[in-house]
């Protein structure tokens, strides 16, 4: 069904001074997914990314881009087909926003009108209305706006793959979260294959379909966020996730995943329950409910805040199950 677009085969990168940045790494990235490389600084995650657009050259092993070995491809063409976003943004301060965003299409010699249209489209997508921003210079923008321009520049030629090296790392926490959310929405629309580097595990869990956890130039675990939370490969991963691992895990389960469908409230509506005088999940304000798709984290908060033993899981008008504290405990991975 899905095909892989980037494949690493036993890739090693050793610098001339003998430092081994990454050692014998193999993994595959599926088309249209976001893969996050996470780990402490100096663990090789950025190097991994730079190997893909050949800002660094590998020492041994093979990397395939869409089935072709990257060393057989022209470096410059390869880079023009891969979007690149870095933490420092690296905008061209002597050019306007429009010229920055239109850089790759210009290099690809698109015609003028097509570039202009594309620039406007992207600025609007990035929530920087084109009529206001296209003729401004990067220095006039805030940090968050500058990074939006950086992302727009990377998207300009509609690349299949985007490399993002701590794109939101230099922003304040509020702007960072806003950009993360917006980017998730944009990603849902544009459906790119994204390689994303961060040192922030929360960002990794939020952004990634797959996460590769790095340590000293090696991948210690490559899995879905949920799998990493519930089955950390070793103590390093467990420590890296942090002591609030179980709470993070709650955010990755939905009420629908853990609910008990056998309770006798199932199949009834809230008004029927009220008429029957059912006391479960009820307090002074009425019944406490969560949607099937809401996270177990939300369910737990409601249970604690409402001082009830459990909540009802609803789908539209109908109650489809119940979630109690015991259900949550049973479904969380053991503390180990």
């Amino acid at each position: 069904m899905t095909s892989t677009i980037i494949d690493f085969e036993n890739v090693t990168k050793e610098y001339p001074d003998g430092t081994v940045a990454i050692e014998d790494i193999s993994f595959s990235v599926e088309e249209g997914t976001t893969t996050v490389f996470v780990g402490p600084s100096g663990c090789g995650k950025t190097t991994t990314m730079k190997l893909v657009n050949r800002l660094e050259e590998l020492t041994s092993g093979k990397i395939y881009y869409d089935g072709q070995e990257i060393r057989s491809l022209d470096k410059i063409d390869l880079r023009r087909n891969i979007g690149y976003v870095i933490q420092e943004i690296g905008l061209f301060d002597h050019m306007t926003v429009a010229e920055n965003v239109g850089m790759v299409p210009t290099l690809l010699e698109w015609d003028r009108a097509r570039i202009d249209d594309r620039v406007d489209e992207l600025l609007d997508l990035m929530d920087l209305p084109a009529e206001t921003y296209r003729d401004q210079h990067p220095m006039e923008l805030s940090g968050g706006q500058r990074q939006r321009v950086g992302v727009a520049r990377a998207l300009a030629a509609d690349p299949d793959v985007m490399l993002m090296d701590e794109p939101f790392g230099a922003l304040d926490p509020i702007t960072r979260e806003k950009l993360q959310d917006e980017f998730l929405e944009i990603q849902a629309q544009i459906d790119k294959t994204i390689l994303f580097v961060t040192h922030d595990i929360d960002e990794a869990l939020k952004m990634g379909d797959k996460i590769a956890i790095y340590r000293n130039g090696q991948i210690v675990q490559y899995d879905t966020p949920k799998e990493i939370l519930t089955n950390p490969a070793n103590d390093f991963v467990r420590e890296f996730i942090g002591s609030d691992r179980l709470i993070k895990e709650l955010k990755f389960m939905t009420a629908g995943d853990v609910m008990d469908e056998t309770a006798d409230v199932t199949g009834k509506t809230l008004s029927e329950l009220g008429a029957a005088g059912v006391e479960f999940a009820r307090n002074g304000q009425g019944y406490l409910t969560v949607e099937r798709s809401e996270t177990t984290h939300v369910a737990l908060m409601k249970i604690y805040e409402g001082h009830v033993e459990g909540v009802l899981v609803t789908e539209g008008e109908e109650v489809v199950g119940t979630v109690t504290e015991a259900d949550l405990k049973r479904n969380l991975s053991e503390g180990r």
């Binding site: 880079r79 870095i86 520049r153």
Partner: peptide
């Protein structure tokens, strides 16, 4: 000239002359 600006330029596929 800021190293990151040059790296970004290289990353988007500009040749050294460009």
């Amino acid at each position: 000239v800021d190293e990151s600006t040059v790296e970004a330029a290289r990353g988007v596929g500009m040749t050294e002359n460009q």
